[in-house]
């Protein structure tokens, strides 16, 4: 991790503003977004819709074959590229990047032996956990918005843009469709809150950030596999990945809000449970590094 410079400056920032929670949060964000790794992940996410758009543009110039519904509608309207990008990124790429950020949150500090310095300064352990979690949430939002905006921009560049056809068959104007794209990005952000909390908890268990990252990503995949098995149907509404693709309900006319609400409630449950677990572990742990 070639991030000694931003980390040092982040520590400086912490030292000057440590008395304020908001200042601590701002410095944590500065550390996160000054890292080359964070930008590499956001660029990789932005590449997803760009690759889709370019591939569809090259391959569909002659034929008009029917592919999956979302990929097919790209050629008619570039504004769909962002949604198609999110659809493809939600099962793997987004959990991957969120797992890296959340898994690294505490274990990364422990690994680089900066955790005890953070706690020597009068930063409470609870506040540290909360700030680390909020930074991961901001990253989720940044990741979802990156996918959405990159998709819309490349779509405008490569495909015709016009009124958007919703799943219900109704047509809405460009302004309305941009609002819905924003809502879908928010939906994706909310969807990742539970996974971020799980990652934060795992991160308090170990001093090896790679292990915490891998465990978080593996859990997200396990949850999705369980969600697709009919034998575990009783478990499905309790899996944090259950509503991940439910953002399609935002593309109906009128918008079906119930899946947004159910998703938010479920993620809140995960945040409470794993936040409490992380607190239990982190506050009772001997910080040796």
């Amino acid at each position: 991790m070639s991030s000694s410079d931003p980390r040092a400056s982040g520590l400086n920032a912490r030292r000057t503003t440590r008395s304020l929670g908001a200042g601590f949060f701002a410095s944590e964000l500065a550390v996160l977004f000054r890292r080359r790794r964070t930008w590499a992940m956001l660029l990789a996410l932005a590449a997803v819709p760009i690759l889709i758009a370019v591939a569809v543009r090259i391959s569909s110039s002659g034929s008009s074959g029917r592919g999956p519904a979302f990929i097919d509608s790209i050629t008619q309207n570039g504004l769909f590229v962002g949604i198609a990008g999110l659809t493809i990124a939600i099962p793997l790429f987004l959990p991957l990047t969120v797992g890296v950020v959340a898994g690294d949150s505490i274990a990364g500090e422990a690994n680089t032996a900066t955790l005890r310095y953070l706690l020597v300064s009068p930063v409470g352990r609870i506040r540290l956990l909360v700030v680390k979690y909020l930074a991961a949430v901001v990253f989720c939002l940044a990741a979802a918005l990156t996918l959405s905006i990159a998709g819309i921009l490349i779509g405008i560049a490569l495909f015709p843009v016009g009124p958007v056809t919703l799943l219900s068959g109704d047509t809405v104007g460009i302004g309305d469709s941009l609002v819905r794209s924003l809502l879908i990005a928010l939906y994706a952000t909310v969807s990742l809150l539970g996974l971020s909390a799980v990652g934060l908890f795992i991160s308090t268990l170990t001093d090896a950030p790679v292990g915490a990252m891998a465990a978080t990503v593996v859990l997200s995949i396990v949850a999705q596999v369980l969600d697709s098995l009919s034998q575990t149907e009783w478990l499905h509404p309790w899996l944090f990945s259950h509503y991940w693709l439910g953002f399609a309900d935002l593309l109906r006319q009128p918008i079906e809000w119930s899946s947004f609400g159910q998703n938010a409630l479920l993620q809140l449950g995960y945040v409470v449970v794993f936040g409490a677990l992380a607190y239990g572990r982190f506050s009772s742990k001997d910080i040796l590094s």
């Binding site: 409470v272 449970v273 936040g275 409490a276 607190y279 239990g280 009772s284």
Partner: peptide
């Protein structure tokens, strides 16, 4: 760490509260 057991109370209480 017997003296820190109470820090796990929220972790135990959260699932109970949700249930």
């Amino acid at each position: 760490m017997p003296r820190t057991w109470h820090r796990w109370i929220p972790a135990a209480a959260a699932p109970v509260a949700i249930g």
